[in-house]
Write a protein that binds this DNA or RNA. Sequence first.
DNA 1: TTATTAAAGGACAATATGGTCTTTTTGTAT
DNA 2: ATACAAAAAGACCATATTGTCCTTTAATAA
Lengths: 142, 142
Amino acid sequence: MFNKETEYALRGLVYIKLQNLKNRRPGTTEIAKEIEAPQFYTAKILQRLVRAGFLRSLKGKGGGFFFDPDKPDLQLIKLISATEGDKSYSSCGFGLKHCDNDKPCPLHEKYAVIRDSINKLISDETVQSLAEKVYKKELNLR
Amino acid sequence: MFNKETEYALRGLVYIKLQNLKNRRPGTTEIAKEIEAPQFYTAKILQRLVRAGFLRSLKGKGGGFFFDPDKPDLQLIKLISATEGDKSYSSCGFGLKHCDNDKPCPLHEKYAVIRDSINKLISDETVQSLAEKVYKKELNLR
DNA sequence: TTATTAAAGGACAATATGGTCTTTTTGTAT
DNA sequence: ATACAAAAAGACCATATTGTCCTTTAATAA
């Protein structure tokens, strides 16, 4: 489905939000361990996400990562666009540059339906909505 | 959706089958041109597919690629398993090693539905069924 | 103001993917 | 038998992805 960077970003952000709900600001070591991802790679990815403005961080003692409570929820599609690029779930399943209802590839009719449902999923769900589910249903992140 | 190798394999095979329907056996140069793929890379991919037993080839004058008429149709899922590995559309969208109805990730409920429909699509459709669509509806492969 | 803590930054390495080119082998037609 | 055509094989290169580690910067607590 997603590439590694997106996976780690997604799991990491959900973990951060989950801890934020408990008034904690986790750091890279803890996050990486809890989501079972490579520590330094996770740190680098989180760095990028901070630079992209998706979340905030604090250095030094008591520092760590946290979401700005004033910001709107982060749709998965925004995250995925940042890590994998825009065209991930907008392009042709057959690999054609131009493929639409008028000039479809042989997969178009059936694949378009699936692509739409993927886009609905990643537009509807947010990092926060997933964290809520984990919190309420005590789901696991690893 | 798919990686480049799978895309070229898929388009290439459909083109070959389409030509076979017209009693032709296309070669690598023609195939690569018609599906707009890199020539030598396409040749290498077709080589692998022949070795994997998905289609046959003939060297020398009048040679080229063709499907064994006695073989059953090639499901896309078989092709994709060969080019991308088994777990492409069987694993967790969140990246968890263990994720099922009992111990789900926060995406599971919605993603499982999508994953099932992808698996249905690539099990139902075959290289031959796609070639038929292209033939009957005069669709394009590039 | 100093020590400590933790993120930021950046260099570097390993692996996978995507792609090119040349040589060898094999089949066909003449 | 020979020339030719086309796939097979394999060496090689480019780029992207994934991952590690070391140094620097900034914040906090003592």
